[in-house]
Design a protein around this nucleic acid. Structure first.
Lengths: 299, 299
DNA sequence: CACAGACATAACGGCACCTCATAAGATAGA
DNA sequence: TCTATCTTATGAGGTGCCGTTATGTCTGTG
């Protein structure tokens, strides 16, 4: 493979033209240059590739064999370049997003829908997972974009805040509690609590906040899925610690009511994260600006 | 495909090394050159192919896609070159010979056998056909070497005389004729004759010779295969016009006897023909010198 | 026999590529 | 936090290669 690859390009052209002069014209170089290139290639391969006659040149047996390989190889490179060009024009491509189910359904869905309608040739893949997991996938290059709260290592990822989540406590409208009363931390902690399982970052965040104020959270019920949490709260099992943005519908419909509190848990931001300094694929780049633009317009 | 192919060689190396400096060492050029090449490739493809970080470089999504194509393409070129090299060393290849069945069995066989034992990796293919047909195949490049008598266009083919064939008339030892008598053309023509079918060049040659002397040959029996001719003559059907060299065994064993003639039909040469000015494949070249050397040694 | 067409050869000139040198970042270890 | 040592990027400059022009050689063709 020490042969200069440019020579193969000339070789292919000559083989197809069957005529050095014509090949030279196709290549926009002089006949002399082509002649010399073929000579050089033959010398480097130590094989006669063409037989010359007065009406042009013809491939020898060996030349014909080589031509098949060269043709395929050039074809491959050409299709590679073509695909690259398509990708650049977002006419194909692959976008892998890491996000939790909640973020996907509560926030991402409309963007995915719009993006997919705008660029139907781009395959979108969602890898489901919590903040920590998807950030790991981002670091290892398994996903192009990750949606997470509280990025662990701020230095290595670029984060764009998409929306804030507020932790609140809710109960069924007919739950035996005073919705007019302004509850303290201690009072909240004494309710029969319904919380997410401990792996969820919002649960950990909540627990941490209470602990900072000297209180241990001891939930009555722990659940894995957010929808179950809402359902149990709605039928009056107790007070649920939830993210306000994700129960907006139930609050609006009156199915659940928010408890007034004397304290305010600082909101947490859900960020769209990409690896710092690592170039995105065209598709990912487009998706990111897509989301940023949409959010920027809304502000 | 306007991209300089050399850049792909560099690209592949860098992709595999994951490190520009290391790739530069593998390519025996400076790090700077590699850096510039990658930059140029990315600019020409208008696509970021690598992401740079302090410990080296990594392929982007697009780069990875392109790499697969480039790797395959380079692989193809490499195997092409490898095959070429094998061919040159006669460790593989293809040799197509055009010859009549008679020439093959009566003359070629020992050479084929020896050649094949010497270069077992070379596939030998025999295309069976008479002089005219195999010369046509030679002209159109379907065969590398053709064995024929009386080449039609002396200018365009190189012919090497392999052996002479002598037309003679034979009969069974007990055939009612005088083997002491010296026959004239007319006397021969009056025998019940056994000849090959008219397509055979030796038959045509014989007919032509008689015609030049004002005689039409009117055979009793016409046959397609030489062995049948011998068989029929042997059981006394008549006098057969044959090529002496091809009935040597029968003459020696006394199964057939030659009739003495007052005339001598000029011998015809069977030539090994190759296209003039057209380079042979390594295998063909080797076979031709093989035959020439063997015959030269015998002379 | 002259001419046209095709490939080969020779000599030269420019520019692309490579090298050297240095800068700029990032990481790891003290 | 500072330094040593990786990495890649960039700048400047020389030279070898490649392509150009011009001419030679050969072969069919009118």
């Amino acid at each position: 493979m020490s042969v200069k690859l440019e020579l193969y390009k000339v070789f292919k052209e000559v083989a197809e033209a069957g005529n050095i002069t014509a090949a030279a014209q196709s290549l926009y170089i002089s006949q002399s240059a082509v002649s010399q290139s073929i000579k050089q290639l033959e010398s480097e391969l130590q094989t006669r590739l063409f037989s010359r006659n007065s009406r042009g040149v013809t491939l020898t047996g060996e030349g014909e064999m080589l031509y098949e390989y060269v043709r395929s190889a050039m074809g491959l490179l050409e299709t590679g370049e073509a695909k690259l060009s398509q990708t650049r024009q977002l006419q194909m491509g692959h976008l892998i997003i890491g996000a939790s189910d909640t973020v996907t359904s509560q926030f991402l869905l409309p963007y995915l829908d719009k993006f997919h309608r705008r660029y139907p040739a781009i395959r979108i893949q969602i890898v489901s997972g919590r903040s920590h997991k998807v950030l790991g996938l981002l670091q290892s290059g398994k996903v192009d974009v990750a949606f997470a709260s509280t990025p662990s290592e701020p230095g290595s990822v670029d984060a764009f805040s998409c929306f804030a989540t507020h932790s609140v406590f809710v109960a069924a409208a007919d739950y035996p509690c005073d919705f007019k009363h302004v509850y303290t931390l201690e009072e909240i902690a004494r309710f029969p609590l319904i919380l997410l399982e401990r792996k969820a970052s919002s649960r950990l965040y909540l627990e941490k906040y209470f602990l900072q104020n000297g209180l241990r959270l001891d939930p009555e019920i722990e659940l894995g899925a957010r929808s179950l949490l809402v359902d149990l709260a709605a039928i009056g099992f107790g007070v649920a610690g939830v993210t306000e943005e994700f129960v907006r519908r139930e609050l609006d419909s009156g199915k659940l009511r928010k408890l007034k509190t004397a304290f305010t848990i600082p909101p947490r931001s859900v960020d769209m994260c990409t690896l710092h300094g690592v170039p995105l694929t065209a598709a990912a780049r487009q998706f990111v600006s897509f989301v940023k633009d949409s959010l920027g317009a809304n502000v």
